[in-house]
Design a protein around this nucleic acid. Structure first.
Lengths: 340, 340
DNA sequence: CAAAGACGGCGAACCGGTTCGTCGATGTGC
DNA sequence: GCACATCGACGAACCGGTTCGCCGTCTTTG
């Protein structure tokens, strides 16, 4: 193992001078700097991360806690992870990943042992049991997902209320008067996935205010149950002219269901989903959708986290709660409802 | 920050005694052990990872290099990552994740700075440019995917040759005489994805030996192109009675294509895929398939890697190259071909 | 021309663990 | 009763960086 001492002796300077030459934290003569740099190249020196962490109390590593829960759509989670990972890399940070069930112990391990400079929590529930631990930790934290209590952390999420209103208003303006909203399964809500409620309540509100009938339902998140449920819904409500899908599995199953029923969008039925563009491409979904922007949310979380880590924002400055405005990506799956 | 010095002074022993009491590497009186353990609980002590890494030259972290290439199916990659991550956790290791384009620099960063005790490389190409770097590194490495040169690393992969034979033989025994094999796009092969060739060559061989006509084709890995290609293939070869799919996107697109053509499996057409059971469930694919076992491969790679790290296998002992035998998961999509 | 200041380099201490060698207090054998 | 081994604890050194304080030299300034 080549150490800074080796570099120093090759360059014929002291260890401290070698360190200053490389960090630039004190002025060093050009001559010495050149000698040190040459020695670094000659030996292929790279600083030992553990030693540096010990000396500087900084690791340049960010902890990422992702949980792959039953009934939640794993490919969607991946989008968030990639947003976080790639942004961290751009900013010069590495990612320590934990995917285990028990997020609390993983979080404690990372923070207590000072393996990380900061933490990103994905898929945050309304009363997330990881939050108290994160608040007690000395490292800053950034969340993707809105908890009931945002104290002490930076929070980023899609504006699900606005998303619900947008979906309803879009179809109302086209002339639809009876819609179905397909949400995630009810136990996702019970587990604390408040975003389901946030979208649904806003949608119900918007519908009531404008005299539109909106039928909200919780649908399974697994095949083939979700396909059967969609069929049952369409059977039970033949007068429905529009479908709002806040459930990835349902969105993925819909093309087959519609095809089997001989229904085409938007001629017979208008459809709007809520998922990422990447998701739509992967599954070849032809429906207009509210972009859920997972990569963007991951990116924002890391950006703000790094600002805190690097002290560009004071520890007393208030934390951020930022909502991404939903945008409708038009894929041509909505139109005026068919004449009855 | 609470250090082992704090623990020692609370327990009224020296730092070294506290260390021995916790590690058990030397005998310590029961009385002292109790006092130290009490102090640890009282203070909530956790060793500083950087300091420990510096002293022991071990980090208990494994580096994971995953690359999300254009034209490769991201959800499939996730399966491997989860296998690696969960197994590492079980064995007491954390995962340092790199997803950036430039795997070489990420690898060098991790190994040179001694951030990790070992490396897992996913999606290894035939002439993978990360391999020379990994061989030069002092840490052991484990691969998922078969390179041309396996020297110095442990290698794990599906037995794609056997998979190819299995697919062909299964349909031949049922009486099929003309098949199409849908492979990944040709540039996946050109980039070094030799597994495509390995399966295809073995399938072609097996077909020739048994007098079956096998038409191998490279299909796109994106929607909607792959759907069009499948349609074109079925149009061009009406006498084909069986489809072998070694292309995730094609498998995902097939249900819609067949439905549109009014074709049902296995009555009109027999289908065998090659993907993981998890993948089949996510996409609700009704086809029998060769299990590609990504979680199992990830698990095997980490297991062997940890054995090397912990010195349970000597540095002179030869490295492992292990193939997982393909297993056919029967989902009822194959049968004797229809009478002509 | 002497005092003050800037510059460039060095030595030593420190970060928080682990581990080796030592040493006194016990216990054992002859 | 003495030599000897064993046990349990301690002090010091070490891992590989960073950083503070100091000092000699050269330049600037009154």
């Amino acid at each position: 193992m080549v150490t800074i001492g080796d570099v120093a002796s090759i360059a014929k300077v002291s260890r401290s001078t070698a360190s200053y030459a490389l960090s630039g934290k004190r002025t060093v003569s050009d001559e010495v700097r050149r000698r040190v740099e040459a020695a670094v190249r000659e030996l292929g020196y790279t600083p030992n991360a553990g030693a540096r962490a010990l000396a500087t109390a900084q690791t340049r590593v960010i902890g990422l806690l992702a949980q792959f829960l039953e009934d939640e759509f794993a490919p969607a989670m991946l989008q968030y992870m990639l947003g976080v990972s790639n942004t961290a890399c751009e900013l010069g940070y590495d990612i320590l990943l934990a995917t285990e069930e028990d997020g609390r112990s993983a979080l404690r391990r990372m923070t207590d042992s000072r393996m990380v400079d900061g933490i990103v929590l994905l898929n945050v529930a309304e009363h997330d049991d990881r939050l108290p631990i994160l608040r007690d930790a000395p490292q800053p934290g950034a969340l993707v997902g809105l908890p009931a209590n945002c104290a002490g952390v930076d929070v980023f999420d899609l504006d699900f209320e606005e998303a619900g209103r947008l979906m309803v208003d879009h179809l109302r303006r086209l002339g639809h008067r009876e819609l179905i909203l397909v949400s995630q399964p009810e136990h996702v809500v019970e587990r604390g996935g408040a975003y389901v409620w946030r979208l649904q309540n806003a949608a119900v509100d918007a519908a009531r205010r404008s005299g539109v009938v909106l039928r909200p339902v919780f649908a399974p998140s697994r095949q083939p149950e979700v396909g059967r449920e969609l069929n049952a819904l369409l059977d039970a409500h033949p007068s429905v002219t529009g479908l709002l899908i806040n459930n990835e599995a349902a969105a993925a199953a819909l093309p087959t269901v519609l095809h089997e029923r001989g229904v085409t969008a938007p001629t017979d039925l208008s459809v709007i989903g809520r998922y990422s563009d990447e998701f739509a491409r992967t599954f070849s979904l032809p429906y207009s959708s509210i972009e859920s922007a997972p990569d963007r949310l991951g990116r924002m979380a890391v950006r703000e986290l790094v600002r805190r880590i690097e002290g560009q924002v004071g520890p007393d400055e208030p934390h951020v709660v930022r909502f991404v405005s939903p945008e409708l990506v038009d894929r041509g799956s909505t139109a005026t409802p068919p004449e009855v």
